Amino acid sequence: MTLILKNLPFILQGLTLTLALAVTTLFFSTIIAFLLGTLASLRFRWLRVVVKVYVELFRDIPLVVNIFFVFFVAPLFGLELSPFAAVTVGLSLWGGANGAEIVRGGFASVPQHQWASAAALGLKTWEIYAFVTGPQALRAILPPFVGLLTLLVQATSLGALVGVTEFFKVGQIIVERTTMMEGWNPAFAIYSAVLLIYFVICSALTWFGRWLERRLKSDLRRPASGVAAMPKPVTQLP
């Protein structure tokens, strides 16, 4: 405990960088996911094929290989990316691919008669997505998307492999520095603290996802406001 308190500013710095990496990755992953997921739900076959190739490519490549590829290959094309930027790009490409499949599935869950009715009313394509099918698809998209955020928080630890001083890397540095300078190995205490904090963050996100799913289901079962309930039949007494 003394060792943790002594290195608390360093630990908080690493935790802040981990959260910043997770938020940045989620931001770009969300943009990629909703853009590609929406394109995949359009009626143009060639668009669906392009999105499918992208999704399968980045979902089938191991995430650590994807990060290494961005970090080591980008400089060959004149893109000098910092470790933070390289990890952000690698995680965003992977998160966008998984998120695109979630968004596509969300739009596919909307009944076909909703699309047909909106088109029959003369709505434009963007109006159908924005005002008719989009709000309905969000009910199916949001819970698994929160789960994707949990995976992205866990995946930020891979940044330690390319030099990002995030939370897990900070733990490694403390263990190595203490072993070399003080002659004892604090690996159990430090990595237990790292494990506990990751568990708390990811458990909170998992709980939020389950709460959101229950809330959306209850809203779905609730009758719309302004709709009168059907009167119960009156039983005539003899």
Rank of each mutant, 00 (worst) to 15 (best):
P186H: 00
T178N: 04
V170S: 11
R222L: 02
L149G: 10
A140W: 07
R139E: 03
G209K: 05
G183C: 06
G147D: 01
V162E: 00
P143Q: 09
Y198A: 04
E176W: 05
M230W: 12
R139A: 09
G209V: 13
R214G: 07
N185P: 05
P144I: 01
F145Q: 15
S203E: 15
P186R: 03
F145Y: 15
S157F: 10
A187K: 14
R214Q: 11
I190P: 06
A140R: 12
I201E: 00
L216A: 05
L148T: 02
F168E: 04
R210D: 00
A204W: 02
A224E: 10
S218I: 11
L142V: 15
E176M: 14
L212K: 08
L216H: 03
E176K: 14
T156R: 04
E166I: 10
M180I: 13
F188T: 11
Y191P: 06
V200R: 01
D219R: 14
A155D: 14
I190N: 04
A160R: 09
G171T: 08
L151K: 12
T165L: 13
S203W: 08
L149E: 08
G171F: 03
E176I: 10
E213G: 02
F199T: 07
V146S: 13
L151I: 14
G209T: 13
A228S: 11
R139D: 03
R215Y: 08
W207H: 11
A187Q: 15
N185V: 08
F145V: 12
R177M: 02
W184H: 04
K217Q: 15
I197T: 11
G183D: 02
V175G: 01
I173Y: 09
A228P: 02
P143F: 05
V194Q: 03
A160P: 07
I197K: 05
C202I: 10
P186C: 02
F167L: 06
L138R: 09
S218C: 06
G183I: 03
L161K: 01
F145S: 15
T179G: 13
F208E: 00
I141S: 04
M181E: 15
G163F: 08
K169F: 13
C202D: 01
V170Y: 06
V146Q: 10
A204F: 04
L195H: 12
R139H: 02
M180C: 05
I197P: 09
S192L: 08
G159Q: 07
G159M: 07
V162R: 01
R177S: 14
W184K: 03
R215Q: 05
S225W: 10
K169D: 09
A187E: 13
Y198Q: 09
L138I: 15
E176T: 15
F168K: 07
L196D: 10
A193R: 02
P223T: 04
V162D: 00
R214N: 11
I201M: 06
G159H: 05
G226N: 05
L220F: 09
V153L: 12
E166T: 09
I173M: 10
T156W: 06
P144M: 08
V153M: 08
D219C: 09
A187S: 15
C202Y: 05
V164N: 08
F188A: 10
A228E: 10
S225C: 08
L216W: 03
E182I: 07
K217V: 13
S218F: 11
Q172K: 11
S192H: 02
I190G: 01
V227W: 13
E166H: 11
S192T: 12
K217L: 15
E213A: 09
T156V: 00
